[in-house]
Each structure stands twice: as structure tokens, then as C-alpha cells.
Design a protein around this nucleic acid. Structure first.
Lengths: 146, 146
DNA sequence: CTTGAAGCTATAGTTGCTAGAGACATTAGG
DNA sequence: CCTAATGTCTCTAGCAACTATAGCTTCAAG
């Protein structure tokens, strides 16, 4: 049995984050020692590693909640898990596209900055005038909402 | 002179966001009409467009605050603005690298999912075991913090 | 047996907004 | 000129996903 600190260390998750996951119901309430401290076994360790890994892959806690409940019922079809992963992939692809455009724009800004006075600074100038941009770089959320 | 709604429409920024920017001091307090409604001129419009554009490029509000104060003092050297833009570029590049790895991992997960039962689902399996991953895909923040 | 680290709870703060309530201002139509 | 609809006002609370703080208790090492 591990204390919360050991568990956090092992899984690469900070202690308050583990308590937070318990609070929002992603982790079940932990067993307690005689002195009221949380104790974790192998199962909790695996569940936390799952959560951590999914977070690393960019899944939201809501998506993870769904994936965990799927994982708890191994007899169901995996279509739902597949759908969640696919939608996450779409998400990532769109962010990737946007970031690529941003990178190009920032590079242009930085390269063109001659190191003179602010009055002639390309960085400030470009930020003040979108028409100086070569690429489209809007937030997808701005359109996607609804 | 524009009302807050017209300004928001023109700049592509929602009305409460404009009030929020004023509240946190990114925009100066607006003039008011006789009926206490905010009125904006050309200068405010430009400033808001600057903010909006910088946000689109992923700058934080703190960075934008710095950029704006630079832009307000055109006689200074533009080294600071350049540094902010460069650090933003570094940020974007690192997110880009990480997202690229994520994309590869998600693609692997999704492709390998045969569409059977959860018990055999690659998505769930991979999430449960990082060693099944081909690439490194951690949050940079986790390391970068301090 | 004492001390310092690690644990506990509870609350508040972070970033960048967004949503709601309830009251006042403005504008278009009849 | 009155009314209805829309716009604006302030204020507060909420979102994700934690992180930090305060003030306490418990545990492990020397």
C-alpha cells in the first residue's frame, strides 16, 4: 500500500492533483490508514497512470471519465472509445494546423525585426495590422462555438 | 464614436471581453455617453485590434500588456518586443513538436483498434500502458515549472 | 521523545474569458 | 409620444484543470 506522496511520485502526478481527481470522482475514495491518511493499491495506481497518460495525450477530464467507464465494462463494443480517440485526433490535427500557421507568422515577425527602435518594429507593426499577415491564423473555437 | 457593441463587431471581440479587458487595464477606461454607455474612437479600435491579433497569435494577456506598453513608447529599443515574440515562437515550436508526437500516437491507437470489444481495445490498452507508445509525449510544463 | 517531513481539510487563486440577473438607455415602429 | 425590442450597465458566479495557502494532525527517523 502506497501513501499519496509515493503514489504521486510513482505516477508522475502531484499530490493535490490526486486529491482533486478523487474529489471530482475520477478516482474512487481511497482507503484510509488508522491515522486517516489515504492508502493506494495496485488498482488505484493503474487507474491514475491511465488518467495521467490520457491527460498527456490531451484528452479532457470529461473524455477520460468516459474512457474509464468504458474500460470498467470490458464487454461493451469499443466503438465509443474509438470515437473518443478519433475526435481527439481531429482536435489535435486542427490545433496542429493552426500552430503551424502561427509559427510561420511569428518567424516572419521575428526575422523582419531589424533591432532598431519600437517605431520601426515589425513585431509591433504586424500585431497592429492583421493585413500584414501571410497566413490565416484564427482561433478555431471562435467559429466552432455552437 | 462607436458603442461597445459596434466596436466588438468591428474588431471580432465579444462585448463582455471588451469590458473584461478594460477591467484588467488592457484597455483604458472608455469615455461615456450622457447615459453612461461606453464610447470608443479610432484609438481604442486600434488598440483592441492589436490585442485581438496578438491573442490570435497565442500571446498571453501578460505578454500583450508588455507589448502594448512598448508600443506606447516608440522611442525605446525594440529588443524587448523582439524577445517576447521570440519566446512566443519557442513556445509555439515546443507545442508543435509535442502535438506532432501526440498525433502520431493517436493515429496508432485509432488505426489499431479493430472495432471489437473493449477488452481488446487498443485505445484503452495504450492509455493504460505508456510503454506501448512509440514516441515521447509529455507536457513540457511538467518539467519546465521552475 | 522530539523534530521535521508528509499528510489532512478547506478555501481561494490562476488564465481568459463566458453566462446570468436585474436595472437603465437607446432606437424603430405605430 | 408611447411602447416594445434591443443594447448596455453593474455585479456576481462559473468554466477547465489544477495550484497554492493556512492551520492542523500524523508519521518516520534519530
Amino acid at each position: 500500500m502506497l501513501t499519496i506522496g509515493k503514489l504521486g511520485e510513482a505516477a508522475g502526478v502531484k499530490v493535490p492533483t490526486i486529491r482533486y481527481y478523487e474529489q471530482i470522482g475520477l478516482l474512487p475514495e481511497a482507503e484510509r490508514s488508522s491515522g486517516n491518511q489515504r492508502l493506494y493499491g495496485r488498482k488505484a495506481m493503474k487507474r491514475l497512470a491511465f488518467i495521467r497518460h490520457a491527460r498527456d495525450l490531451g484528452f479532457t477530464l470529461e473524455a477520460i471519465r468516459d474512457l474509464l467507464s468504458l474500460s470498467d465494462n470490458p464487454d461493451q463494443s469499443c466503438a465509443a472509445a474509438d470515437a473518443i480517440a478519433r475526435s481527439q485526433l481531429v482536435e489535435v490535427e486542427s490545433r496542429l494546423a493552426r500552430l503551424t500557421a502561427l509559427k510561420a507568422e511569428l518567424e516572419r515577425m521575428v526575422v523582419q525585426c531589424a533591432g532598431g527602435k519600437i517605431a520601426d518594429c515589425r513585431v509591433i507593426e504586424v500585431l497592429g495590422d492583421h493585413s500584414l499577415c501571410a497566413t490565416d491564423h484564427r482561433h478555431p473555437e471562435t467559429e466552432a462555438t455552437q
